[in-house]
Simulated assay, not measured.
Amino acid sequence: MNIKSIFLLPIALSSSLLAQACNNSKQKDKQKEVTFSNEIQSANKTYNATQDTIPISTADLGNFPFFGLPENIRYESKPLQRNYDEIYFPTNRTGQLEKIGGRSFKSNMINTNNSEWSRPYFIKSYDEAIKAVGGVKLFEGKFKYEQIQFMKENAEYLGEEGSLDFYNNTIHSYIIRRPDGDDIYIQFDANTAGGAIQIVQKEAFKQTISIVKSDQIEKDLNEKGKTVLHISFDTDKASLKTEGKEVIKEIAIVLKNNGNLKLAIHGYTDNAGTKARNHILSEQRAQAVVAELSTSGIDESRLTVRGFGSQNPVADNTTPEGRAKNRRVELVKQ
């Protein structure tokens, strides 16, 4: 063997060993990538689930709000329960916010006097209880700036009992799909001192305000000097809905049957929006009533208009039912 061969052999062997080492390293990296990819896919089975792919739960959940308290945890004060409310929930892994309407439950929670608060214990308790009855996690994370701004501008009565701290805390959101479509949405958060939970069982809003007929309007005017009507307008507009026009037809009947009757038409709103905006809107809606009566042949000289905005509420503005009652038109006999 010549000297050239003596030097080439180690180099060849070294190159072979190096190539083999590189291949082994690449295989290990690929295995790691596959494992990591599988972990992501497994996680996304939870976070990427859509309404159509989430399995329906037929578990017997008992009575609303369905979930009791974990051991050594109590309500900080009396929970808020409403027959109908609208609350925003993050409904996918990106935190897309959706307004869910239905029966609601909200409460803050703290530890009992003989125990220390544990954030992991609180979260794990509800996570396992929800999943045990077929619930699926929709979102877990902190809200981004855009989400926080959206909530500040659109969410109702932030800061009351059971409000989540979406400024600072991680939000956990779940859904339990039900056979009849009355799906249950749950979201909660916690810090080092306590937690909060919100539950909504989805349900369509049921209108409980019926159209007052002409004979009742006339009776109220004669006995009370005024009548209160709930005339339907488009949201934040003075354009009448079909059912709103039906109410005005009843007013026209009264005016036609009583040729000397003159009415002051007073518009009112709920407290959503600014005072200035509400004042303008209430006056525009009262004027829309006059314009509609005019198309029915009523002389506008018999009618006067005034807007009061959100003044003189007749119901609680913190509930959807109350706000619906405050959005009204009052006819005052002149």
Rank of each mutant, 00 (worst) to 15 (best):
S5F: 12
I6V: 12
S16I: 14
Q20Y: 13
K32Y: 15
N38F: 08
N38H: 11
S42L: 12
A49I: 03
T50Q: 03
I54V: 10
S57P: 02
F64C: 05
G68C: 04
N72R: 12
R74V: 06
Y84C: 08
T91S: 01
R93D: 11
T94A: 04
Q96L: 06
G101T: 00
S107V: 05
I110N: 06
N111E: 07
T112V: 04
N113R: 10
N113P: 00
N114C: 06
S118G: 15
D127L: 06
G134D: 04
G141T: 08
K144V: 11
I148F: 04
F150A: 00
M151N: 01
E153M: 00
E153Y: 04
N154F: 01
E156Y: 03
E160I: 00
I176E: 05
R177S: 00
G181I: 04
D182A: 02
D183E: 10
Y185I: 11
I186Q: 01
F188V: 15
N191E: 05
Q198A: 09
K202N: 07
A204V: 08
V212G: 08
K213R: 03
S214Y: 08
K219E: 11
D220V: 06
F233M: 04
D234H: 10
D234M: 07
D236P: 09
K237P: 01
L240W: 14
V247C: 09
I248Q: 09
I248Y: 11
A252L: 12
L261F: 13
K262S: 09
D270S: 02
G273V: 00
H279C: 04
L281M: 12
V289P: 10
V290Y: 05
L293K: 01
S296C: 12
G297L: 06
G297T: 09
G297H: 13
E300F: 01
L303D: 12
V305K: 02
R306G: 11
Q311E: 14
V314R: 03
A315T: 05
E321I: 13
K325P: 00
N326Y: 07
Q334C: 01
